[in-house]
Design a protein around this nucleic acid. Structure first.
Lengths: 126, 126
DNA sequence: ATTTTTCATTTACATTTGTAATCAATTCAA
DNA sequence: TTGAATTGATTACAAATGTAAATGAAAAAT
C-alpha cells in the first residue's frame, strides 16, 4: 500500500518546516520561509492547501490561528523519494549509487568513520 | 554553468536506452521500450522530440533511419539529479543520506566489501 | 456597530509532464 | 509513376506544478 502522496519540490520546502516544528502556525511558516525562499505569502498558502488536499497535512484551529501537523512522516517520504530516485537514475542499483556519492563529494574524516562503521555493522547481520 | 537540462521521469527512460546504445535508431528505441514500458510508439516519439528540443539529444540521418546520440552524459545527468535529490530530501546532508540507504536496504557481502574499500580509499586522500 | 485588517479559501494562469492522435513527407511496392 | 506504407513533425489535451492575485469571512480597532 503505497499511499504516500507525491510531494513536489516546492511542497517539500514547506512540509519540511512542519516536520521541524509540528503544530506550527501558518504565519510562522510564512515567516520561516521568507528567509529560505523567495516566495510570496500567497504562494506558500497555495502550497499548504495542496498539501492539505493530498492528505499530507492536517490543521487544527488553535484559537484564531491555524496550526499544521504532518500526516505523513519525513521518514516515509524520504523512503518513497529515495525509491523513485534510485530507480530512475541508477536503475535501482544501490551500490553504484552509493559509490557515485562517495566518490563525487567531499566527506569529513568523521563522516567517513561513521560510514565505515555503518558498513561494518551491516556486515555483521546477514 | 549548470547547463544540464532538466530531464523528466519519462524522458529518463528514453535517454537511458540511448546511453546504452549510442547511435540507436528510433525504431530500435521503440522496440526496446515496448518491453520495459507500456508506452505507445507515439508517446516515445514525443519524448524523443522533447529531448531534442532540450538539447539533450541530437540525431543523424543514416540513410533512411534517424539515429540518436546523447548530448549530455549519463554522469552529468546523474550528478545533477543527485544534487537536486540530496538537497530536497536530505537538506544537502550527504552522510545522513548515505546512512539512510545503507540502513534501509539489503546489500550483498560483496557490495559491502566494495563500499568499505571505497570509504578506505577516500580516507587516504584528504 | 461600522470600518479596517487579517488570513484562509478560491480562482488564475503559464509551463511542464504524461499520454497520444493526426499531419506531412519520404520511401516502397505495384 | 502513382498509391500505400513508414515514420518524423506538429498538434492535442488533461493533470501537475510554480507562482500568485482576488475574494470572502472572521477578528480587531475605532
Amino acid at each position: 500500500m503505497d499511499n504516500t502522496p507525491r510531494i513536489s519540490d516546492a511542497e517539500w520546502q514547506v512540509i519540511k518546516v512542519i516536520w521541524q516544528r509540528p503544530g506550527i502556525s501558518a504565519q510562522e511558516i510564512i515567516e520561516e520561509l521568507e528567509h529560505s525562499s523567495s516566495w510570496s505569502p500567497a504562494t506558500i498558502k497555495t502550497l499548504l492547501n495542496r498539501l492539505l488536499k493530498k492528505k499530507a497535512l492536517r490543521f487544527e484551529k488553535e484559537g484564531k490561528a491555524y496550526c499544521y501537523h504532518a500526516l505523513v512522516s519525513e521518514e516515509e517520504c524520504r523512503q518513497s523519494e529515495s525509491d523513485s530516485f534510485l530507480s530512475r537514475v541508477f536503475d535501482g542499483a544501490l551500490s553504484p549509487m552509493l559509490a557515485h556519492f562517495i566518490r563525487s563529494r567531499p566527506l569529513s574524516e568523521e563522516e567517513l568513520n561513521e560510514l565505515e562503521s555503518l558498513v561494518r555493522q551491516k556486515k555483521g547481520k546477514p
